[in-house]
Amino acid sequence: MDLQLTLNGKRVVWQAEPGENALDLLRRHSLSSVKWGCGEGDCGACTILLDGRSVRSCLLVAAQLQGREVTTVEGIKEPAGPPHPLQTAFVEKGAVQCGYCTPGMLLSAKALLASNPSPSTEEVCRALDGNLCRCTGYQKIIEAVQLAAGRMRD
């Protein structure tokens, strides 16, 4: 099928099988930030934003992206532009260890901050509850989201 979607702000048309796994499809188009961690919808490494909501791309098929807006970490900053405040905060706080879960975390955090610019710790934890991290124990990730939130409010 001709799959038309808005990817990171740009209209694209891809050839895809309607039943093709959306994670495979995105990786096939060089969106390497979208990671395979389980393929079963449990780990969150493949998180994307679909019309602004964090969802797991490994559970979606290509056809479900038709006409939708898809955001990946490649699209949260201009290619030559400065990092997104969340990216800066993650790096500064030590919230990135192995980095494999980081793109998914960033997107979940971005979706949260779009609807809730001043989240409590509890709200940050809730928004990130679908993104597993085995390295950090989440402490610095939570701090980083709140640091970024503060900077984005200013």
Binding site: S33, E74, K77, P83, Q87, F90, V96, G99, T102
Partner: peptide, 9 residues
């Protein structure tokens, strides 16, 4: 850190 946070390959 930043490369990883950008989802670089």
């Amino acid at each position: 850190g930043m490369e990883l946070a950008c989802g670089a390959p």
